[in-house]
Amino acid sequence: MSTSTTTPSETIHVTLGERSYPVWIGRGLLDDHARWRAALRGKHALVISNHTVAPLYLERVARGLDGLHWSSFLLDDGEAHKSFANVGLALDALSTLGATRDACVVALGGGVVGDLAGFTAACWMRGIDFIQMPTTLLSMVDSSVGGKTGVNLPAGKNLVGAFHQPRAVVADIGTLDSLPVREYRAGLAEVIKGAAIGDETFFAWLEQHADALAARDENALVQAIATKVRYKAGVVARDETEQGERALLNFGHTFGHALETAGHYTTLLHGEGVAVGMLLAARLSERLGMSAQADTLRLERLLLAVGLPTEVPSGFDPEQLLALMRLDKKNTAGTLRLILWRGIGRAEIVSGVNEAEVLAVLREACHQR
């Protein structure tokens, strides 16, 4: 941790007219009840968390809910539990609570909790408030901001969902103290992604501060989180429902989601899938003559510097991965539509990508010819 005596903090606004909201980043925010309690408009609240996070932080959040009618619903930990079955149970919990149209769902956890809680809030009485309290780096810099909610199906990840913006995002970096190293590193993949697709200056800053970020230096961490959130907030404000520019945020995700699904959500964490997926997208871009090898190598070096994987795990089948990529939501008219790049900071949407070229990249990554 940083030895600085001043705890850094940032407030970033996601500007969406009447649905605008703040993203608070800093230490001790879960205990700043006066700040986030004001975002709750009614008398009912359901805290959705999981069995790993709740024992650590639920009591602190509960103190801020004093005087409300509230209850909690806890998931088991892991991507496999972002399911329709658990949405049904969460809706039952809202029903038991007697939640009205001005109720609020509080998402206390990582991306799985946030996505499922947001989708639950979007469904109850056709949409009630929710607040994001992300407890992982990945959810702080990505999934908690922008209003994407959803659940997984056996056929693929996030195939069902809704755009439903939170009332506020409370990113208490103190919760990262309890985050396992692997989970923390997975979050850095989304930070790197933001730089890779649209900010070469930030990418160079990450290269210079890779060691500090890997060591969880607090000043570097807050700056990295704030820069990534500020970038994403701008994209969301310009393209809330992903009709154009926002799709760029999926750089590496079509490959990554296929890897996650093929591994039954147990082989790779989401951020690890994104890390490998970004590198595969860069290699495909290079193969298609869009980018230079030097950019691919810079990306690979940065991923390795912060401890992220860069190789497809053994045992994966390239044909299966391609089949899973065909299910991606960005595809149109039965053709692959991928986010590729022309080098660091210059991502673009490419339609009609030749499947033979994609398969060649997958075969090479899976060490098949």
Results as ranks from 00 to 15, higher is better:
residue 1 M to N: 05
residue 4 S to T: 11
residue 12 I to T: 13
residue 12 I to V: 15
residue 15 T to L: 07
residue 23 V to E: 09
residue 27 R to I: 00
residue 31 D to I: 06
residue 33 H to D: 01
residue 38 A to V: 08
residue 47 V to D: 04
residue 50 N to G: 02
residue 52 T to L: 05
residue 56 L to T: 12
residue 64 G to V: 05
residue 65 L to Y: 11
residue 69 H to N: 15
residue 75 L to N: 06
residue 75 L to H: 10
residue 79 E to F: 05
residue 80 A to P: 00
residue 83 S to D: 01
residue 86 N to G: 01
residue 87 V to W: 04
residue 87 V to E: 05
residue 93 A to L: 14
residue 94 L to T: 08
residue 95 S to V: 14
residue 96 T to A: 15
residue 100 T to I: 02
residue 106 V to W: 03
residue 107 A to D: 06
residue 113 V to L: 12
residue 120 T to C: 12
residue 120 T to S: 11
residue 123 C to P: 00
residue 124 W to I: 02
residue 125 M to F: 09
residue 130 F to N: 02
residue 132 Q to D: 10
residue 135 T to W: 05
residue 136 T to I: 03
residue 138 L to C: 00
residue 142 D to G: 08
residue 146 G to Q: 11
residue 147 G to R: 04
residue 156 G to H: 12
residue 157 K to H: 07
residue 158 N to S: 10
residue 164 H to Y: 06
residue 164 H to W: 14
residue 166 P to L: 10
residue 170 V to C: 12
residue 171 A to V: 10
residue 172 D to P: 15
residue 178 S to R: 12
residue 178 S to D: 13
residue 182 R to I: 09
residue 185 R to N: 00
residue 186 A to W: 01
residue 189 A to N: 01
residue 195 A to D: 02
residue 202 F to E: 01
residue 203 F to W: 06
residue 205 W to Y: 00
residue 206 L to T: 01
residue 209 H to A: 05
residue 213 L to F: 08
residue 214 A to G: 11
residue 215 A to I: 11
residue 218 E to V: 12
residue 219 N to K: 05
residue 221 L to P: 06
residue 224 A to M: 00
residue 224 A to V: 00
residue 227 T to E: 03
residue 229 V to T: 04
residue 229 V to M: 06
residue 229 V to A: 04
residue 232 K to L: 13
residue 233 A to G: 09
residue 234 G to F: 11
residue 239 D to G: 06
residue 242 E to V: 09
residue 245 E to I: 14
residue 250 N to C: 15
residue 253 H to D: 13
residue 256 G to A: 15
residue 257 H to K: 10
residue 259 L to V: 09
residue 263 G to P: 07
residue 263 G to D: 10
residue 264 H to K: 08
residue 265 Y to N: 12
residue 267 T to Q: 13
residue 268 L to V: 07
residue 275 A to M: 03
residue 279 L to A: 05
residue 283 R to Q: 15
residue 285 S to T: 08
residue 286 E to P: 09
residue 286 E to Y: 09
residue 289 G to I: 08
residue 290 M to T: 03
residue 291 S to V: 01
residue 295 D to S: 08
residue 296 T to M: 11
residue 297 L to M: 04
residue 299 L to N: 02
residue 302 L to P: 00
residue 302 L to H: 06
residue 307 G to D: 02
residue 308 L to N: 01
residue 310 T to D: 06
residue 310 T to Y: 05
residue 310 T to H: 07
residue 314 S to H: 12
residue 319 E to I: 01
residue 320 Q to S: 03
residue 322 L to S: 12
residue 322 L to F: 13
residue 323 A to Q: 11
residue 330 K to P: 10
residue 335 T to M: 06
residue 336 L to R: 02
residue 344 I to S: 07
residue 346 R to Y: 03
residue 347 A to N: 04
residue 348 E to G: 04
residue 350 V to C: 14
residue 351 S to A: 15
residue 353 V to E: 08
residue 356 A to Q: 14
residue 356 A to I: 08
residue 360 A to T: 14
residue 361 V to L: 15
residue 368 Q to I: 04
